[in-house]
């Protein structure tokens, strides 16, 4: 399993879209820093990342956001896609330990 981290907002950077294009179904994607905006269920970003996240998640790819980064930015749990799990630093470490390698998209 590869752990992909994305730390840029999909509204000003292609990191999330570039990641979603090559992520595998047994991989995990962790949205951190400004990357957490990518987890908003109301997002109308172009291209349609929400659809990709839902499709990939249905196929098995796991999605996470870092709770502290959501909290800092005023993103409440209810605003996030249900397909995205909320995790903390310990969860980040556990994912990193589980992964065979980490790819950071920035």
């Amino acid at each position: 399993m590869i752990l992909h981290t994305v730390n840029k907002s999909a509204f000003d950077n292609r990191a999330l879209g570039d990641c979603l294009r090559v992520v595998a179904t047994n991989d995990a994607v962790l949205l951190i820093e400004n990357g957490v905006y990518g987890a908003l269920s109301s997002s109308q970003s172009e291209p349609a990342h929400v659809e990709s996240i839902l499709e990939l998640s249905a196929a098995g790819t796991r999605f996470y956001v870092l709770q502290a980064d959501c909290q800092a930015r005023g993103l409440t749990d209810s605003a996030l896609l249900p397909a995205v799990q909320i995790t903390d630093d310990a969860g980040f470490v556990a994912l990193a330990a589980e992964a065979s390698a980490i790819q950071s998209w920035y």
Partner: peptide
């Protein structure tokens, strides 16, 4: 390529 890499530097 990702899956077979031990480390990825981006």
């Amino acid at each position: 390529l990702f899956a077979t890499s031990k480390n990825i530097l981006s």
